[in-house]
Amino acid sequence: MPMTLFADADALLRCEKSYRVGRGPVPWRGLIVLLLVGGWTYGAAMGAYGGRPLQMLYSASKVPLLLVASTLVVLPNFFVVNTLLGLRDDLGAALRAVLAAQATVAVALAAMAPLALFIYASTNDYDSVTVGNGVIFAMATLSGQVTLNRHYRPLVARDPAHAIAKRMWLVLYVFVAIQLAWVLRPFIGALEMPTAFLRDDAWGNAYVAIIRKVTRFFIG
């Protein structure tokens, strides 16, 4: 099983075999397994900051949830946008592209789990580990972008409207994912806070918090 998983991850990163660029059936099973295993692995590492097994378990379940739920919320719009742009004939290939990108994010996160543990081992400062995790997520997202661009290159060459569909997907996906990450916090688990699946004030709004912080910064 682990060898199959590695072979699958390798094929995904290289866009080979069932993960090849272009049309064909979406390899649902492989993509879901990679997404779950990758997310679990990094989530467990992310929650290891305080050395609390329960927080590790919570974070391990929340990272795949973040990736899957963000995708599911945005998919209806992706479908309509592709149809409106006259790209329905390529929908299978476009779907393969976005799902492969999501799985790539999970695989990249898993690959950077040792990095997160290394950061935890080297500092106790909560702000530093938050920034470290932020950078890792940003790098994983860029890795996902590489896969997305590989899949989209022939599609855009065939019809430039695919570039619009891809951009709309990215904007809406990031918009939803940031809010979902805010709702699903804590992922790291500050030492002075009790272990919890969700914070007591989880149902806030990331954007309102950011806007108010920025306003206070500039206006006071």
Binding site: L72, V74, N77, V80, V81, L84, L172
Partner: peptide, 9 residues
């Protein structure tokens, strides 16, 4: 149609 597709968001 597009508005409804924003519904889940």
């Amino acid at each position: 149609g597009l508005l409804a597709s924003f519904g889940p968001v």
